[in-house]
Design a protein around this nucleic acid. Structure first.
Length: 104
DNA sequence: CCGGTGACTAGTC
DNA sequence: GGACTAGCCACCG
C-alpha cells in the first residue's frame, strides 16, 4: 500500500472529516481504517489536535462504548455529543453500535 | 538509537 | 462491572 507521506495524525484527521453529524467512531476503527493497530497513536493524535474547531475529534469514542477522553475534558465531549443527538448515560453511549460510522 | 508516554484495547479476577 | 495487567503503536527528547 502506498501510504501518504503525512503523519499518522494527519491521516486520522482526514478520516475524522468523513464522519457525518450525529455519527461516531472508535479509536480502534480509525486505526483499522489506516490499516494499523495503533489505537494508542490515534488517541495521541487527538490529544495533539490543535484544530479542535475544524476536526470533530469529539466523535471518537472507546470500543466499549465509553465516551473516552477529550482535550477540553470528558464533560465537554459529552455535552457536544449530546448536542449532536447522541444519548449518553454515565459516560456510556446509549445504542452505541447504532451510531457507529464505517469508513470505506 | 532507545526509553518513556498516552484522548486505547482485550483479557483476567 | 470495577480494578489490574499486558500488548499495542506513533511521537518526542
Amino acid at each position: 500500500m502506498s501510504n501518504t507521506n503525512k503523519t499518522f495524525a494527519a491521516r486520522c484527521y482526514d478520516l475524522l472529516l468523513q464522519i457525518p453529524n450525529g455519527k461516531i467512531t472508535t479509536y480502534a476503527a480509525i486505526a483499522t481504517a489506516l490499516n494499523s493497530k495503533a489505537y494508542r497513536a490515534v488517541g495521541s493524535a487527538m490529544a495533539k489536535n490543535e484544530q479542535l474547531i475544524n476536526i470533530p475529534c469529539h466523535r471518537v469514542v472507546k470500543s466499549n462504548g465509553c465516551v473516552g477522553n477529550y482535550r477540553l475534558g470528558t464533560e465537554e465531549k459529552i455535552k457536544i455529543l449530546q448536542k449532536e443527538g447522541i444519548m449518553i448515560k454515565n459516560g456510556k453511549i446509549i445504542n452505541f453500535s447504532r451510531y457507529l460510522y464505517s469508513f470505506n
